[in-house]
Design a protein around this nucleic acid. Structure first.
Lengths: 135, 135
DNA sequence: CTAAATGCAAAACCTTTGCCTCAAA
DNA sequence: TTTGAGGCAAAGGTTTTGCATTTAG
């Protein structure tokens, strides 16, 4: 079992106490915390960690493709562990983020870009929805 | 021919000189200007317009569904005239924004949301691509 | 005339950075 | 030991806001 710390070492990252805390925190989060949330959770564990370190660390982890930035339109960068393509559906009534993967959608994006004369190198998709009443 | 000013009046907006300038400027823009660009273009026409008025006006126009915000990941809000569903493909090499509409994609988004138990009330999609060499 | 809009400057946010100190390898 | 990392506080960039003044309707 290759854990997240090993992956950081493989990526050539120096593992400091602060980094370990931040990384494990994102690893174990089951939501999509923004930087301030990560900060507040981190100082619960070690209250000497600074906001600047959070920013520097997430930016590093993102470059190493270990975490991914998620932007859901609230003006704040949120992060999640990188674990392959998936998209987000945001519940507009409570902000809950639901993940999904849809192969057909992935293909379609590639095809659209190709038809327009581009190689697809990235994308961003968020759906905003409201829960349907079951009937 | 219902022009953009008429639409503003229908929406109940008071038409000031500043608003007229800002609105017509966005109406006639063939790119996706950010707030600062709108500001610079506006003061070329009337140098008493303030940045605050640009922000207040675009926010008003957006609420009235007369313009739409486009976020292409550069951290700045860009605006375009509301003119029905379409998506954006950003050329990562030069920032050019290409628009497209793809019916199949629209349907697919609706279907995905529905299958997840949601009514789709909005979405955001940007593709990032690099021009293919013709061969 | 009167409510609403503007200008200006200050403040509010989120994020980045300089610099000196501290710690991982 | 040495180079990179962290803490702190200041600065940066975008957007919002308070308040006195002006203006559209």
């Amino acid at each position: 079992m290759t854990n997240i710390i090993d992956k950081c070492l493989e990526a050539g990252l120096r593992i400091t106490n602060q980094r370990r805390i931040i990384i494990e925190l994102i690893d174990s989060a089951d939501d999509h915390p923004d930087v301030d949330t990560i900060y507040r959770r981190a100082i619960d564990i070690d209250d000497t960690i600074s906001l600047a370190t959070i920013y520097r660390t997430v930016s590093l982890l993102e470059q190493a493709d270990l975490i991914e930035k998620v932007e859901v339109g609230d003006g704040k960068a949120r992060y999640e562990l990188a674990r392959g393509h998936h998209e987000h559906l945001v519940d507009v009534d409570n902000g809950d983020i639901h993940e999904f993967y849809h192969a057909e959608l992935e293909e379609l994006k590639e095809k659209i870009a190709r038809d327009m004369g581009f190689e697809l190198v990235g994308h961003r998709l968020e759906l905003f929805g409201r829960k349907l009443k079951p009937n």
